[in-house]
């Protein structure tokens, strides 16, 4: 219990320092561009495969469920609302978060255990500004874009699943979609992406930064694992909070 509280207080202290570094100075631009490219473009392939299957799956599964009480006609609505507001943003955050967060945590933990961070401090280079801030900015800005992309691909996939595989009427699906899904829902999805991206990056850099030299190579593994799991759990919990505030 005291362990948990210590970690939490460490995290809050780290968050304060990281926020100060993130918002008071402009991060080194080449660094930011490199991390943005790695986090954003690097995740597109993975995200595309996953969203296509998630979208198809959403159609098939909801069809199987709604068929039981004769509600197949709701499919377009359910696939639209459930997908755009909840499923795709959360999936993008969990999956890309797992990939990006693990990379961030592993990279920082490696620098920490090989004392590169201390070396920076000795040279009076602020590691928060040069290591943490560009990564925070990169992931915070990359995830909303990924979420928007996932929304488009996901809707396309669930439409394809409904019309071509389940043989539903495409016109009904489209009109239902247009009826319930507006720009505001897409905006909410991207807003969620912004929050999740920031959270994932903060958690990952925190765990990477906390790795101690004495832990050695295992410290890198522990940091990576915690970054993935804590990031995913926090995103899912926070998603409920945001949805509750907005739609509850």
């Amino acid at each position: 219990m005291s362990e948990l509280l210590r970690t939490l207080s460490d995290f809050l202290l780290f968050a304060r320092r990281a926020l100060a570094a993130q918002f008071t100075q402009i991060p080194p631009l080449p660094e930011f561009a490199r991390h943005f490219y790695q986090a954003g473009v690097g995740s597109v392939g993975l995200l595309t495969i996953l969203t296509v299957f998630a979208g198809l799956n959403l159609s098939v599964q909801s069809y199987a469920t709604f068929e039981r009480f004769g509600g197949q006609d709701f499919l377009g609505m359910f696939a639209g609302i459930g997908g755009v507001r909840e499923l795709y943003p959360v999936m993008a955050a969990v999956v890309c978060g797992a990939r990006i967060g693990a990379n961030l945590a592993a990279a920082l933990a490696n620098m920490k255990i090989s004392e590169q961070v201390e070396a920076l401090e000795v040279m009076s280079v602020d590691p928060m500004r040069h290591l943490v801030a560009p990564r925070l900015w990169a992931v915070t800005l990359a995830l909303p874009v990924l979420c928007g992309y996932a929304n488009v691909i996901g809707i396309g996939a669930s439409y394809a699943g409904a019309v071509w595989q389940l043989g539903l009427d495409g016109g009904t699906f489209r009109s239902q979609l247009a009826e319930v899904v507006g720009l505001s829902d897409l905006a909410v999805g991207m807003f969620k992406g912004l929050v999740f991206g920031w959270l994932v990056a903060l958690i990952a850099t925190f765990h990477g930064y906390r790795a101690a030299k004495k832990e050695g190579a295992e410290g890198v593994g522990i940091a990576t694992n915690r970054a993935i799991v804590h990031g995913a759990v926090m995103c899912i919990l926070l998603n409920l909070g945001i949805s509750w505030l907005l739609y509850g």
Binding site: G82, R85, V180, S243, Y247
Partner: peptide
């Protein structure tokens, strides 16, 4: 699911 399902 409850939150969004209820709306529909």
């Amino acid at each position: 699911i409850s939150l969004q399902g209820l709306e529909i």
